[in-house]
Each structure stands twice: as structure tokens, then as C-alpha cells.
Design a protein around this nucleic acid. Structure first.
Length: 655
RNA sequence: GCCGCAGUAGCUCAGUGGUAGAGCGCACCCUUGGUAAGGGUGAGGCCGGGAGUUCAAUUCUCCCCUGCGGCACCA
């Protein structure tokens, strides 16, 4: 006897083992029709799998929260079937689910074209109509390897060979087509439905390693209903409008051009955002005990050799020979023999040089040394991405030199600062990651153990949920990474906090302890925004260009209705500016409708409309972005209110 | 760096083996209009760069550059 408990709490008894199908049919015919899989004690399994013990069971239908994952993975199998039928000789590799869909990597000489995608999608639809029935077999490992080798599926054979010994080699059949898979799967291809779409083709290295062959990856999306699919596609379209590269152009914030690939030309409006951010974070740092420095842009390669960066990152550094270029047109410009310097890719070695001036006492620690450091990194071409990944970047960098017993306190202090800043920015959707020791690293394991534990403990103490990013730490120490998500769901590291025992050693930083003995300080690398470039990019996408009032490059546009009000408008502008507001004037010979529309598109937070009436009464009519209503206020009141709104969050706290 | 796609006016895009077009934007004129598009006229292009095929290339081929989507990388 098997007792099955249903979600409503009722219990049904069955003679001997049952399947999900049996249970569904036992409940109702219509449920059996809709059933996709079955959830047994929290684990989703195939409808045809046997249940031979008492269990809590849910029938998974399209409406069930677990349905989507199954449908997506079935769609990946569907894709693989269609591809192999249309392009014989193509090998399958892996095809996992991802956010909003799935991909499948294929090994084939010829890449897939956009036209191919259409054909494949059509074939997928046909296979759905064929309603190929799913069944599962468990194979002997050696037999499976031999079988897949024989049919030319060498990647599959490799995957099976690498499966953990304990794991069954499960082969799923959809009709004749079959694949190694963990499952579960839908009862037939018919159950997938047609709410799927192939999105794009891309290259991807086998096993994510650039030394391996490149496979052809097809990305797709799949949903439980056509409605959801449509909504998703619409969401993508909307997200495109938030793209900071697009908004940067539309709002006249910045541009890029080939002569400075990967470096930003900040336009006046864009740089106003930067200035507001910089002024804000500088005040926050001043208040938090940091002292700001400025270090050289070009430093001798010998320093980078000592720090270890030359060995590990030289290929990403801009190297400059320390010599006068030849003025002889027939001779090579550079001799190739000069000593080398490099544009700094980071500020830490320079900060240690400042630390090393004079003798530091334990009483001096912690020293919190900040710099808005402009760094250059020669990033791979394919890595560049708008403001998010650039070759010239300015970090809101700082290094804290402290004793080991001060790490915990400094970490709490930093997490507090970080939380306050992100709260002020309205960016509270943050993913916390603890990046642990990489394969190539400096320092001994005991030190790494201590350092990783210190960071994990700090996050836990702060009540922050985090995940581990195994092996992704810096070569000198583990990192806390603070990630934000862009408009289309890609995540980017913004803030960072890194523990470093190595650089102080390499660059011989010391302080004198209570006994007069020399000691190594610990170095904490940290950035709140990360870089101004990336953070501004993220801000723009987060707010879809509608930046908070205090950050908006143009806060108020004074727009006239008729030229009668021009003189008054000039007066309003002057007073707004005198109150510290970033205001502009629009006295063009255009209708007020036109001006309102244009400045709304320009994401100007406040339009101050003035006509003859306002001029007469010394008033302004304020219209806030996104609102239909205006409010009419006296000029004095309006300026007082707007000036208060324009205060940066830290200043508002103090006001 | 790797795979794929793309590059035509400031922007979005159409088009063609005989050197180009639209909408928006811009300039000028008319319009002085009360909160998301008033009307007219006009300027603006080495059709990404180089080479090849051709009587002729923006169009076809090759190479390069840049951009886009992924992958790899990210101190």
C-alpha cells in the first residue's frame, strides 16, 4: 500500500507502486490531461516515474511554479532534435536553462545563420505537433559512452565519462531522438506548447575555456503561454530604451569615438552627473575618516614588477617607453631600448609609496587613503561595453592600512558606508558575493583561510545574504563584490572590498608596534561606486534616464509661453541659478506644448512655465516630469522648495 | 582575443552595378500659441577605410577598422 498525500491534505491509498499519471487520473480525467510532471516530497520527477513509498504529491500543470523550468528544458531538447534533423552531423553538447530561457551548444563546422534559426524554429513547431512520446532508460555507463562515441557524439561521451560515479546515466527519448539528461521531462513534445522563440546565435567555448574549440550556441526563450512570451518580448523592447548608451546620446551626456576606443568623452551634462556624485562621495569619505591623495599616472615598470602586476597583468597595461621619440622621419619613432613606464592600471602600489614615506606607528593606524584615481587598462576588444567596461576609468578608490585586529571593525565600517551610499542612490537591489582564492595566487593557505573567514563573518554579522564566487578572488586576497543589474539583466560589479596581506609584503610597507618592532600592515582595497563610468551607466539604466533631482544634469528649464514673459523668465533663471540650481532657459518661439514635450523627452525633472500671468504675479507654474498636473507657486516659495529638493542626501541629513 | 551579425544624413532606417531617399532633428521664415508634435522653406552624405573584379562599385569579392550580441578576460 502507498499513501499519497495531496496538497489539500487529503490522502489516497494505492495498491502498490504508482506513477504520477495514475494519481492524476485517480483525481480527475481533466487533471490527467493537463499534467506535465509530478512533485514528490518536493522533488519534481517524470509523470511516468514510479512512486513506491508514502509521499506528499503535487501534480505539476502549466500553472504550477515548477512548470516553466521543465518546459524550458524540454524546449532545449526540442531545439536539439530540430537542429540534428536539419543539420545532420551536428553534435550536441549541453543545453541548460538560464534566466528567461535556455541555450544549447552545438558542435559543427558551419555556424548557424539567422535564416537557419527560422528554419529550426519551424521544425521545432512540427515536432511539437508530432507529439513525440517521452521515455527514459537508465544505461550502463560504458554502454552509454560506447554508444554516443559510435554515433559520433564525442562531446556527450565525454560528459558521461565525467559524471559522478554515483549518478545514474539517464537517457531520455523523445520518439527516436535521445539525449543524456538528468530530467525530468514532459510526457511528450506536444506538452511543450508553442510559446517559444529562438533569440540569437553566438559562439561559446567548450567547457567555458578559451583553449577549447568554439561551439555554436543558440539562445532561446520559452514560456507557459503565448501571453507570457509576448510580455517577455515587450519587456526586452522596453529595456532597450533604458540602455545607457542610447540614453547617453539622447540626453547628450557622453560619446565614444574610434580614436579613443573604450574611453569616454563626457559632455557638459554628463559631467555634471559625475561632479554631483564626486562631490557627494567626497563628503561621505571626508566624514568617514578618509584622507584624499593624488598619485602619478605614469609609474616605472619596476614598481609594477615588484607589486606582481607586471607578471600577471602586463598584457592589459598601457606601456610607455621613457624616451624622446625620434624626430627623424626615416628612423623608427621609438628605439625599443628605453626603460618602460606604465599608465597605472590601479592605485594601490602608489598608495603604498605614500604610506611608506616616513615611519608609521601603530598609533597612526588605520590610515584610510582615498583617491579618485584615473586608471587605464587595455581591455580585450570584445570586453568593451559602453560605460560599463572601459579602458580609462576613474575609481572612487581607497586603501585602508591597518593592523590585523582592526580588520573586523574596518569591515563593519565599510559595509555601513556602502549601505548608506546605496540607500542614498536608491540602488538597493544588490547581489553580494564573496570571491575566494583563485588558482594562481600569492600568500599561504592559512592566511587565505583567515581572510576568507573574516569577510564571510562580516557579511553574516551585517545580516547580508551572499553567495560564494569560488576561485574569483584577486591574486593577493579574497574580495567582497557588490553587483548591480543593468537594464537587460546583466550584472556588473560596482563596489568591492578586498583583503590583502600580499602587496604590503611585496612593496615593504611597515609600521612600528608597541614594542618598537616592525610589523606589516594589512591592506584593505575598497571602492563604493567602483568606477564613476560604470556607476553612472548603472544609474542611468536604473532610473531610465530620469535621475533623482539632486543628480539631474539640468534640474529646471524655464520655458516661456509668449515672448512677453522673456524678461521675467531671465529673472527667474538668474534666481534659480543663484540658489544653486542647475537651470536653463527656453525662450524659443515655440508653443508651450512643444516645449513641454521636448523637455519631458529630455527627462528634465522640472519645467517652470512662465507666461504673462506668472510675470504679472511673480509666480511660476511648475510641472514635474511624469505628472500631468502643474502647481503654481510664488517664485520665492518655488525656489526655496526646489533648492531643498536639490540637496544631496547627505546634505539633506544635515540640513 | 574568439564566434556571429552590422556599418547609408546628427538619430532611426529605406534603397540601387550607372555616385542616393524618408521621418525625426537642425537652420531660416510665418505663427505669440497656457502644459507631450502649428505651418512653410532650406541646408546637410568620400553610402566606415583600403584593395580587387568591372567600361562603371555605395551595391559584388577580399582584407582592415569600429559597433552590436554572446564567449573568454576583468588587478
Amino acid at each position: 500500500m502507498v499513501a499519497i498525500t495531496l496538497p489539500d491534505g487529503s490522502v489516497r491509498q494505492f495498491e502498490g507502486p504508482v506513477t504520477g499519471t495514475d494519481i492524476a487520473e485517480n483525481i480527475s480525467k481533466s487533471l490527467a490531461k493537463k499534467a506535465l510532471a509530478v512533485k514528490v516530497d518536493g522533488e519534481v520527477i517524470d509523470l511516468f516515474a514510479t512512486i513506491d513509498r508514502d509521499a506528499a504529491v503535487e501534480i505539476v500543470t502549466r500553472e504550477h511554479e515548477d512548470a516553466l523550468d521543465i518546459i524550458r528544458h524540454d524546449t532545449a531538447h526540442l531545439l536539439a532534435q530540430a537542429v540534428q534533423e536539419l543539420f545532420p552531423g551536428t553534435q550536441v553538447t549541453i543545453g541548460p536553462n538560464i534566466e528567461d530561457g535556455f541555450f544549447y551548444d552545438f558542435a559543427r563546422e558551419e555556424p548557424f545563420s539567422t535564416d537557419d534559426l527560422e528554419k529550426i524554429e519551424k521544425r521545432m513547431g512540427e515536432i511539437v505537433d508530432e507529439a513525440r512520446v517521452t521515455r527514459r532508460e537508465v544505461w550502463e555507463r560504458e554502454k552509454a559512452i560506447a554508444h554516443f562515441k559510435e554515433i559520433g557524439e564525442h562531446y556527450k561521451a565525454e560528459i558521461i565519462a565525467d559524471l559522478p560515479e554515483a549518478e545514474d546515466v539517464k537517457i531520455y527519448f523523445h520518439g527516436d531522438w535521445h539525449d543524456l539528461c538528468r530530467g525530468p521531462h514532459l510526457p511528450s513534445t506536444k506538452h511543450i506548447g508553442k510559446a517559444f522563440k529562438l533569440m540569437k546565435v553566438a559562439g561559446a567555448y567548450w567547457r567555458g575555456d578559451h583553449r577549447n574549440p568554439m561551439l555554436h550556441r543558440i539562445y532561446g526563450t520559452a514560456w507557459t503561454s503565448e501571453k507570457d512570451l509576448k510580455a517577455y518580448l515587450l519587456r526586452l523592447e522596453e529595456a532597450e530604451k533604458r540602455d545607457h548608451r542610447r540614453l547617453g546620446r539622447e540626453m547628450d551626456l557622453f560619446h565614444f569615438q574610434p580614436e579613443a576606443q573604450g574611453s569616454v568623452f563626457w559632455h557638459p551634462k554628463g559631467f555634471l552627473i559625475w561632479r554631483a556624485l564626486e562631490a557627494y562621495i567626497r563628503r561621505r569619505l571626508d566624514d568617514d575618516g578618509y584622507r584624499e591623495v593624488k598619485s602619478p599616472q605614469l609609474l616605472d615598470s619596476k614598481l609594477w614588477e615588484k607589486s606582481g602586476h607586471w607578471g600577471k597583468f602586463r598584457e592589459n597595461m598601457f606601456v610607455v617607453p621613457d624616451e624622446i621619440p625620434s624626430t627623424d622621419d626615416d628612423a623608427p619613432v621609438l628605439s625599443g631600448e628605453a626603460a618602460l613606464m606604465a599608465l597605472k592600471p590601479m592605485n594601490c602600489p602608489a598608495h603604498i609609496q605614500i604610506f611608506n614615506q616616513g615611519i608609521k606607528s601603530y598609533r597612526d593606524l588605520p590610515i584610510r587613503m582615498a583617491e579618485f584615481g584615473c586608471c587605464h587598462r587595455n581591455e580585450a576588444h570584445g570586453a568593451l561595453h559602453g560605460l560599463m567596461r572601459v579602458r580609462q576609468m576613474t575609481q572612487d578608490d581607497a586603501h585602508i592600512f591597518c593592523r590585523e585586529d582592526q580588520i573586523a571593525e574596518e569591515t563593519v565600517r565599510f559595509l555601513n558606508l556602502f549601505a548608506r551610499v546605496y540607500e542614498d542612490m536608491g540602488m538597493t537591489d544588490i547581489a553580494y558575493k564573496l570571491a575566494t582564492r583563485p588558482e594562481q595566487r600569492a600568500g599561504d593557505d592559512a592566511t587565505w583561510d583567515r581572510a576568507e573567514k573574516a569577510l564571510g563573518d562580516a557579511l553574516t554579522a551585517a545580516g547580508l545574504k551572499f553567495e560564494y564566487a569560488e576561485g574569483e578572488g584577486a591574486f593577493y586576497g579574497p574580495k567582497l563584490e557588490f553587483h548591480l543589474t543593468d537594464a537587460i539583466g546583466r550584472t556588473w560589479q560596482a563596489g568591492t572590498y578586498q583583503l590583502d596581506y600580499v602587496l604590503p609584503e611585496r612593496l615593504d610597507a611597515t609600521y612600528v608596534d608597541e614594542t618598537g618592532a616592525k610589523q606589516r600592515p594589512v591592506m584593505l582595497h575598497r571602492a563604493v561606486f567602483g568606477t564613476f563610468e560604470r556607476f553612472i551607466g548603472l544609474l542611468i539604466e536604473h532610473y531610465a534616464g530620469k535621475l533623482p533631482f539632486w543628480l539631474a544634469p539640468v534640474q529646471v528649464v524655464v520655458a516661456t509661453i509668449t515672448s512677453e514673459a522673456n524678461a521675467y523668465a531671465e529673472n527667474v533663471l538668474a534666481q534659480l541659478r543663484a540658489a544653486g540650481l542647475r537651470a536653463e532657459l527656453d525662450i524659443r518661439n515655440e508653443k508651450i506644448n512643444y516645449k513641454v514635450r521636448e523637455h519631458s523627452h529630455g527627462k528634465i525633472p522640472v519645467i517652470a512655465v512662465v507666461g504673462a500671468r506668472e510675470a504679472e504675479e511673480e509666480k511660476v507654474s511648475l510641472r514635474r516630469l511624469g505628472e500631468k498636473q502643474q502647481e503654481v507657486a510664488s517664485l520665492e516659495d518655488a525656489i526655496t522648495a526646489l533648492a531643498a529638493d536639490a540637496l544631496a542626501p547627505d546634505l539633506r541629513e544635515k540640513a
